[in-house]
Amino acid sequence: MKQYFLNIWETIISLSTGFGITWVHMLNIKKGNVTLQYPEEKWPRPERNIGFNHDDYNVIRSRLTVDMDDCIGCLKCMRACPVDCISIETVKAETRGEDIKDIGHVGITSSGSKKAMVVTRFDIDMTECCYCNLCTYPCPEDCIFMTGGPNADRHPIDYEFSEYDRTDLIYRFAKKGSKEKMEAQMFPKKEKAEA
């Protein structure tokens, strides 16, 4: 009989303790909240100190990006890629080293070499990329590189690249309209015959 009332008393005490705990947590939600509203808020990136100077050591593994004004269409990165995630198509330019203004093609690279090719397609499929960094070494113009780290002045770091659609992870770097423009130049007669 004594145990019976002890049980009731213990129930009341333990229930009120539980109530208290959740009540305090509910009142302190502004302070105790652990949720991060992801796209709007992000954890601060830690200061990276891995024992060497970033500027000497081009090994950051983030997103690949291409500076299309410097790309001469030599296909070296495409050949170097072990998983074939880079696909490039080029068309011979009419005059070597000349700008084509309506597609934004730049004739001369920043290191001074004249472009013989117009790149009509430069797709990097980041779903396949294995971040081996092998494509960046053969590039004669240093125009394909990983974002951030030693290249932070050229492109801010992007390590998340989360997208709503998987196809959005195929990054298309070629200048807009270059494919249509160059194909129209290559096959003018065919178009007339069709018309």
Binding site: T22, H25, M26, I29, G32, N33, V34, T35, Q37, E40
Partner: peptide
């Protein structure tokens, strides 16, 4: 919302 606040979450949110 109540369940979220009691578990230190924020519950359904949006901008």
């Amino acid at each position: 919302k109540v369940s979220a606040f009691m578990q230190d979450r924020v519950g359904p949110m949006g901008q």
